[in-house]
Design a protein around this nucleic acid. Structure first.
Lengths: 208, 208
DNA sequence: GGCGAAATGGTTGACTCTGACTAGTCGGTA
DNA sequence: TACCGACTAGTCAGAGTCAACCATTTCGCC
C-alpha cells in the first residue's frame, strides 16, 4: 500500500520525475515545481522538499553527484536519479494509476456529520458552496484554455480536466441534495428540522 | 483555514459530534466510531483518538467529567462537551460544508506525471483501474442498499451517495481519457509513444 | 473448568510534516 | 552609498501520525 514505500510523500514522486530529465539541486527542483504549478496537484512545502530529498538519498533512489558553492552561499548538492529511483518512480506511478486509493475528502467527513447542523442552515451553506464551486470551475477552465493557447500539449493538462470532471459531479450532487432537502415528498426536511426544533425548510424563494 | 483550528484532525470533529449525544470515555468513542463505520469517511487511528481527546481537553472544547475504574483496568475518564466545544463543532462544520477546500487526491498527482509511463502501459493500467472502480461502486451500492433495508434514514447515507457520484464521474473521465489516447485524431498516442520509443497505441481489440 | 482468542483500554516511540527562522545576494532608489 | 524589500537557499524545533506493544478481562468452546 501507500505506506509501505520507503518515502511516502508524493512530493518525492515529483522529485523522482524531474530528476529523470537531468540532475538538479534541491532549490532548482523547488523552482521547477513552482514554475510548473505542481503545487496544485501535490502538497508542496519548501521545508518538506529538503526532507524528502534527504529521504530519497538515504533510500538509494537518488545520489549526490557533486557539491559546489558560490560566494558565501550555503553549498548546493546536485542529485541524480539512480536505477533504483527510476524503478521506484515507475512502480509508484503504476500503483497510483492502476489502483484507486481510499481517500478522505473533507466534504465526505462533513456530510457524514451533517445532521448536527439544522437544515435551514445547511441549505444556505450549500448555496454558498455552489457559488464557490462555480468560481473554482471558471478558474480551472481558464487555466486549461490559457495552457492550450500557449501550446501546452493537452496531455499535460489532463489532471485539470479530471479535476473539472469531479467538480461538475460535485455540483450536480449538491444541487440534487438541496432539492431533496426541500422536497416535502422525501420527508427529510421535516424530520431533520423537528430534531432541531425548527420549522421544516421551504423550497427556494418561498420563505415562511 | 483548516490549520488555524486548535485541533485540526477531522477525528476531533467526529468526537465533538458524538459528545453532543452524551458524555463518553475515549474507548466508548472509539467503539461508536467503529460501529458507525465512520472510518470510511474519517481517517481513524486508535492511537490518534487518545491524542485528539487530549488536545480537545486542553483547548477547552471538552472537559473531564468523572474518572472511574473497574477492577485492575486502567481508569476511564468520561468527557463531556463544553459550550466552546459545541460552538467549535458548528463553526467547523459550517466551514467544511460552505466552502470547498483544495485537496490533493493521489490520482491527480499521478495524472500530472503520467507522461513518465509509456501510453501502452497506461492503457492497461487504466483498464485495471476501471475494474477496481466498478468493484468499489458495487460495494458502496450494497452498503447503501443494506442501510436502507435496515431502516437507516437516507440522510445518514448521503456521504456514500456523494462518493458514488464522484466515482461515476471518475469512471467517465477514465473512459474518455482512454479513448483520447487511442484516437489517432488527437495525435496524443503517437507523440507520447515516440517519446518512449514505442509504436503508437492501437484502439481496443486491434493490437498490431 | 480450563485454555486460547478476542475485546478492552491505553501508552510509547520512531518517524514525518510543517511553519517559522536564519542568513547571504541582488536590484532599485532616495 | 546606504538602505529596503524580494529572492535564494537551507535548517530546525515542535507538533502530529501511526503502528506496535502491553496488560487486563471476558467469551467461546471443548
Amino acid at each position: 500500500m501507500a505506506t509501505k514505500r520507503k518515502v511516502g510523500n508524493l512530493l518525492a514522486l515529483a522529485v523522482l520525475s524531474y530528476l529523470t530529465q537531468r540532475p538538479m539541486h534541491p532549490y532548482e527542483l523547488s523552482r521547477t515545481l513552482r514554475d510548473n504549478d505542481d503545487a496544485r496537484s501535490i502538497r508542496y512545502n519548501h521545508g518538506s522538499l529538503y526532507m524528502v530529498v534527504g529521504q530519497l538519498a538515504k533510500a538509494g533512489f537518488i545520489a549526490a553527484q557533486e557539491t559546489n558553492r558560490e560566494g558565501q552561499r550555503p553549498e548546493r548538492t546536485v542529485y541524480a536519479l539512480t536505477d533504483a529511483g527510476r524503478a521506484e518512480l515507475r512502480d509508484w506511478l503504476r500503483e497510483l494509476v492502476g489502483a484507486p486509493q481510499h481517500e478522505y475528502p473533507q466534504f465526505v467527513a462533513a456530510l457524514s456529520l451533517i445532521g448536527a447542523l439544522p437544515p435551514s442552515e445547511v441549505l444556505a451553506l450549500l448555496a454558498r458552496r455552489l457559488d464557490l464551486l462555480a468560481d473554482t470551475r471558471d478558474e480551472i477552465r481558464r487555466l486549461i484554455d490559457d495552457g492550450l493557447a500557449q501550446g501546452v500539449p493537452e496531455l499535460f493538462l489532463v489532471e485539470e480536466q479530471y479535476r473539472l470532471a469531479l467538480l461538475d459531479a460535485e455540483v450536480s450532487f449538491v444541487e440534487s441534495f438541496r432539492a431533496r432537502i426541500t422536497d416535502p415528498a422525501t420527508g427529510w426536511g421535516r424530520m431533520w428540522a423537528e430534531f432541531h426544533h425548527e420549522p421544516a425548510p421551504e423550497p427556494e424563494g418561498h420563505p415562511t
